[in-house]
Amino acid sequence: MIDQWLATAVAALKPLGLNYAFVLDAGERSAFLHGLVVTLQLCLLTIPCSLLAGVALAAMLTSGRAALSRPARAFVELTRNTPTLVQLYCAFLVLNMLITQHLNGHGSSNPLTPFFWVVAVVALHKAVFHAEALRAGIEAVPRVMLEAGRSLGFSRRQLLLRVELPLALRFALPALVNNLVDLVKMTAVASAIAVGDVTYESIMIWTQRDNVLELLLLILAWFGLLTWVVSRAGRWLEQHLRMPGYGQ
């Protein structure tokens, strides 16, 4: 039944100059669907990893301790001022190779896959932007609230976790959502190191069928859907985390 529906859809689109015959081939259809799933997996992993790393970096940047803030600042400047693709190549082609050589010398194999390196590089790249947004939010917390927390006997860590971060998250949420939308699109760099995401699988298909336009339309639609979901989730969080009357 599904094959009949697909054949009907392909035939209906053909007069429009769109060649989607690849969906009638079980192998190519399966590869494309696998690419959609891999892209979704990348997004589901990189989003929480980038947020956790961003919180950690923001805490280091605002810690007031040079031993923490200076390395964090150096990492932020280096990461945000270099292209993600270059970082991915350096991590996978250089760092991964060094790890492989070291482990091979001890009779072990490298367990780190290309998928891991994409998650790590993309998550850390966006984490520095999260950190800057959160740092701005932390610095925007009114001093009177910090003084109230100190009067209650809160330690520096308790102030950060119970006062500064909850407020900073609300202040920085629009910027964080914007960063996450960009992160979803950034996962497309996975194809550069042959991770089987939707972009890589599409390239493999159109090299055989010469249907670049058709597959690009599908890629655009898939990323458009993912970014729309992230944007809507962000809007929902903004509404539900808004403090009535605060800042007005």
Results as ranks from 00 to 15, higher is better:
Gly105Asp: 06
Asn211Val: 14
Lys126Gly: 08
His130Ser: 05
Leu124Val: 12
Glu214Ala: 12
Ser191Gly: 02
Ala168Met: 05
His125Asn: 11
Gln101Val: 14
Ala133Leu: 00
Asn104Gly: 12
Pro114Gly: 13
Ser155Ile: 03
Arg156Asp: 14
His102Val: 11
Ile203Gly: 10
Val118Phe: 01
Lys185Thr: 05
Ala175Gln: 15
Ala192Val: 13
Phe223Lys: 08
Asn104Gln: 15
Asn110Arg: 06
Glu147Gln: 14
Ile219Trp: 00
Asn178Val: 03
Arg135Tyr: 00
Leu165Asp: 08
Leu146Arg: 06
Thr207Leu: 11
Ala190Asp: 02
Ser202Phe: 03
Phe223Ile: 03
Leu215Phe: 06
Ala172Gly: 07
Leu160Cys: 04
Arg170Thr: 10
Arg162His: 15
Tyr200Phe: 13
Asn211Gln: 13
Val198Lys: 01
Thr187Ser: 12
Leu165Arg: 13
Ile219Glu: 04
Leu159Ile: 15
Val119Leu: 04
Leu165Tyr: 10
Ala192Lys: 09
Arg156Gly: 09
Ala168His: 00
Leu213Ile: 10
Ile219Cys: 07
Leu167Gly: 04
Glu164Arg: 13
Ser151Pro: 04
Glu201Ala: 00
Gln208Ala: 05
Ile138Phe: 08
Ala190Glu: 06
Asn110Val: 01
Gln158Trp: 02
Glu132Leu: 02
Val212Ile: 15
Glu164Cys: 11
Ala175Val: 06
Thr199Glu: 03
Leu169Arg: 12
Trp206Pro: 05
Phe115Ile: 08
Leu112Tyr: 11
Arg150Asp: 13
His102Pro: 04
Arg170Gln: 14
Leu159His: 09
Val198Asp: 01
Asn178Asp: 09
Leu152Gln: 14
Gln101Lys: 15
Leu213Thr: 14
Leu165Pro: 12
Leu226Arg: 01
Gly149Ile: 00
Gln158Leu: 05
Ala190Gln: 00
Arg135Gly: 01
Ser191Val: 03
Ala148Thr: 03
Glu139His: 09
Thr227Arg: 03
Ala175Cys: 06
Val122Tyr: 01
Ala120Val: 15
Asn178Lys: 04
His130Trp: 00
Gln158Thr: 06
Trp117Tyr: 14
Gln158Glu: 14
Thr113Arg: 11
Pro114Phe: 03
Met145Cys: 08
Met145Lys: 09
Leu169Phe: 13
Glu164Leu: 10
Tyr200Trp: 10
Ser202Glu: 05
